[in-house]
Design a protein around this nucleic acid. Structure first.
Length: 571
RNA sequence: CGGGGCGUAGCGCAGCCCGGUAGCGCGCUUGGUUCGGGACCAAGAGGCCGGGGGUUCGAAUCCCCCCGCCCCGACCA
C-alpha cells in the first residue's frame, strides 16, 4: 500500500476523549474513528490487523475440528423469550422497534435452534461450530475505546455433544486452542477460574490479560499455580473457634456502634468473635447473610448459591423487615428471612451480633443453638495477602481484561428450546452444549496495550498490518525514488506485505515519526547518503536497532527477518 | 441510573466569571524555499459557538430545557 494513496489518517496530538494507550494509539495511528459512543469505524489499517488475527483464529479453530458458519445478527425475540434471556439481558439486549426481532448479543439460541431442527442422532455429534461476527450489546456505559463497545467483533464457537465426557473434551480442546491463539497473537495472558454468571452452566474459565485498565479483578497466587476471578476466588482462612462453656445469650447496650470496627473496639474483643449481618433480596425473598468479622460478602458467590439475582435491602424496607437499622441487625429471632452464613462461621459459638433493636447487640450467640442457619457456604471476598486455597502462596489482587471466556453450558439451552437427540439405546436426551468466546477487538487493543512505547505501536509480526514499512526519505532524489519504487515491487513479489511511504511533500522527520507510530516490525529506510554507498538501512521497531546492508542483499535480509522464528541481529 | 467534566473551524484548545466585530496552534489550499526525526516564508479557505426556548437594544458569554461525548460509580452473559 502506498501511503500517498492510502487512507491512514494519523494524528500528532493525543485525542482528548481517549484515556488508555490502546485507544489513543488506535486513533493516532489512523486505525479507528468513533461514530457514536461504543461504535467505531475500522479504517484500512485496523481491517488488515483484523484479517491477520482472524486468520490465526480460523487456523486454530479448524485445527480442533471447528466448522465456520455465518449466523444472522437479527433473531426472533421469541427464541430469547423461550430461554428466559430477554429478562436476563434486560436493557443490554438491543430490541428492533418495528419487528419482533433483537440484535443478537451472542448466539446460543440460534445455534440451539439449528441443532434442534437438524441434529437428531448421537451419530451426528460431536460438532463444533464457530462464527466470527459482529455482536451487539447495549452497554450502559461503553468505555476504553474498543474494549467495551456497543458492537464488537466476536469469535464464538459452540460445541454439541452427546455426553458430559464429550463436553469435557470439547472444552479442553478449546482451552488449548485459545492458548495457541493468544500466544500466536503475541499476547501475555493467563487463565483464571471464573463465574458462569447469567450464561449458566457447570464451569467456566477466562483468558485474561493483566492491565490497570481492566474491568475484572483477579486473585493470583505467588507461584502462579492459582488464578481466579475475584467473583469466585477463595483462600485459606481460619474458621471460627468454638469456645468452652455454654454461656447464656444476653443483650448488651451498644449506643452508637454501627460498624464492626467500632463494635470490636467497644467490646475489646477480636473481630473473629463478631458476626456481621448483611441483608439482601434474593429475587423477591429477603436473605440475611452472616459474615465473620469484617469479611466482605461476595455478591457473585451469593448469587450462584441462590441461583437468582441479588441486591441489597436498604433504608425503610430494612427497618420494616428487621426492626432495626444497619449495624444492629442479627440472625437471632429474625422472622421471614432465609439465613445463610459464611463457611468460616460453621459451628461457631460465643459470637456477638445485632439484636434487631437499634443500639443493642447480643453476645454468646451459638449458631447451632440459637439460630436456624439454612446453609454454610463460601461467601466471602478474598483479600490480598491471604494464602491461596491450593497452597500456592500468598494472593496478589490484580486487574485484568477478559480476552476470552469458555463455558460448559450443559443442557440449559437444549432444555429450554427442546433440542434433543436419540442415543444408542433409542433414548431421548438433551444435547449437551458448550460455548466459547473470543473478543477480536480486544485482542487488537490488548496487543497495543502490551506492545507500545512513547512513539507508538510496536506490532508483533504475527498480526502487524504490514510486515515492512518502506520509507523513501527524500523524494527529490531520483535515485532514492527509483530505488524505493524498485524495492516496493521486489519486497512485495517476495511475499511480504509492504507499506510504502512514497509521499512527495512530506518531510523525512514526519515520515520517521509516522513509521514509529504505525509500528510495523521493520522499517526499510532508503536515504540519499546510504544509497550513495550502495547501502540501505533496516530498523527494527521493537528495539530501535539499525543495520546497514548492501542494496543487493536487502530483500533477502528483510525476508529472513520477517520469516525467521527468532530474528538474528548482526549489525 | 447516581456523581463529576466537556461540547467554539477537520484535530487540540482560548474566549464565558464581568454580554458589545469569534481567536490561537496544528492540519488543509496556492506559490516559493527546504529535505535523516512531526521544516520555513507569504497569501488564502474554513465556524448557526451542540439544539431549542427565555432575559436583553444586543447572547459563544446570563437563565431554563433537551441532546451528545468523556471520566468515576452502579452494571458488565
Amino acid at each position: 500500500m502506498r501511503l500517498s494513496q492510502g487512507f491512514v489518517p494519523t494524528v500528532k496530538e493525543i485525542p482528548a476523549d481517549a484515556t488508555i494507550p490502546s485507544h489513543q494509539l488506535m486513533i493516532r495511528a489512523g486505525m479507528v474513528r468513533a461514530l457514536a459512543a461504543g461504535v467505531y469505524v475500522y479504517l484500512p489499517l485496523a481491517q488488515r490487523v483484523f484479517g491477520k488475527v482472524t486468520r490465526i483464529v480460523r487456523d486454530e479453530m479448524d485445527r480442533i475440528g471447528g466448522q465456520e458458519l455465518l449466523l444472522p445478527a437479527l433473531s426472533p425475540i421469541e427464541l430469547w423469550e423461550q430461554t428466559g434471556r430477554v429478562k436476563a439481558f434486560g436493557d443490554t439486549l438491543f430490541h428492533v422497534k418495528n419487528r419482533p426481532l433483537v440484535l443478537a448479543p451472542t448466539h446460543e439460541e440460534v445455534v440451539c435452534w439449528l441443532a434442534k431442527n437438524h441434529i437428531s442422532s448421537y451419530k451426528e455429534m460431536p460438532q463444533i461450530w464457530y462464527q466470527i461476527q459482529v455482536k451487539f450489546r447495549n452497554e450502559p456505559r461503553p468505555r476504553s475505546g474498543v474494549l467495551r463497545g456497543r458492537q464488537f467483533m466476536m469469535k464464538d464457537s459452540y460445541s454439541l455433544d452427546r455426553s458430559w465426557e464429550g463436553l469435557d473434551r470439547a472444552y479442553d480442546l478449546h482451552a488449548e486452542a485459545y492458548r495457541r491463539i493468544f500466544t500466536r497473537c503475541g499476547l501475555r495472558f493467563f487463565v483464571v477460574g471464573a463465574s458462569s454468571g447469567a450464561m449458566g452452566g457447570t464451569g467456566s474459565q477466562e483468558f485474561m490479560m493483566e492491565s490497570p485498565s481492566g474491568e475484572d479483578v483477579i486473585a493470583l497466587s505467588e507461584d502462579g499455580s492459582y488464578a481466579a476471578n475475584l467473583e469466585v476466588a477463595s483462600s485459606q482462612v481460619p474458621g471460627a473457634a468454638r469456645v468452652a462453656g455454654d454461656a447464656r445469650m444476653e443483650e448488651i447496650h451498644t449506643p452508637g456502634v454501627k460498624t464492626i470496627d467500632a463494635l470490636a473496639e467497644f467490646l475489646h474483643v477480636d473481630q473473629a468473635m463478631l458476626a456481621k449481618s448483611v441483608v439482601y433480596w434474593g429475587g423477591d425473598r429477603p436473605v440475611l447473610v452472616l459474615m465473620m468479622g469484617n469479611d466482605s460478602l461476595n455478591e457473585s458467590k451469593l448469587m450462584s448459591v441462590l441461583g437468582v439475582d441479588v441486591r441489597p435491602i436498604e433504608g425503610e424496607k430494612l427497618r420494616e423487615l428487621t426492626g432495626a437499622e444497619g449495624g444492629s441487625i442479627g440472625p437471632v429471632g429474625l422472622k421471614g428471612f432465609m439465613i445463610l452464613a459464611d463457611a468460616r462461621l460453621k459451628g461457631a459459638n460465643g459470637l456477638v451480633s445485632g439484636a434487631n433493636r437499634n443500639d443493642y447487640h447480643l453476645r454468646n450467640i451459638d449458631l447451632d443453638r440459637d439460630c436456624t442457619i439454612e446453609g454454610y457456604h463460601d461467601l466471602r471476598t478474598v483479600q490480598e495477602g491471604e494464602t491461596s486455597v491450593n497452597g500456592g502462596g500468598k494472593l496478589r489482587i490484580v486487574r485484568g481484561i477478559e480476552l476470552g471466556h469458555i463455558f460448559k453450558l450443559g443442557t440449559k439451552y437444549a432444555d429450554a428450546l427442546g433440542a434433543k437427540f436419540l442415543d444408542e439405546n433409542g433414548k431421548e436426551s438433551p444435547i449437551i452444549m458448550g460455548s466459547y468466546g473470543i473478543g477480536i477487538d480486544r485482542i487488537i487493543a490488548c496487543h497495543i496495550e502490551q506492545n507500545h512505547d512513547e512513539n507508538g505501536i510496536i506490532w508483533d509480526r504475527s498480526i502487524a498490518p504490514f510486515d515492512v514499512h518502506l520509507i523513501a526519505v527524500s523524494t527529490r532524489s531520483a535515485q532514492v525514488t527509483e530505488t524505493s519504487e524498485a524495492l516496493y515491487g521486489e519486497l512485495g513479489r517476495s511475499g511480504m506485505d509492504v507499506l510504502y511511504d512514497d509521499r512527495k511533500e512530506t518531510s523525512p522527520g514526519f515520515k520517521f515519526k509516522d513509521a514509529d507510530l504505525l509500528g510495523m516490525p521493520y522499517q526499510v529506510i532508503v536515504g540519499e547518503k546510504n544509497l550513495a554507498n550502495g547501502n540501505i538501512e533496516i530498523k527494527e521497531r521493537k528495539t530501535g536497532r539499525r543495520k546497514i546492508v548492501p542494496k543487493s542483499e536487502l530483500v533477502e535480509t528483510v525476508r529472513g527477518l520477517v520469516t525467521s522464528k527468532e530474528p538474528e541481529w548482526k549489525p
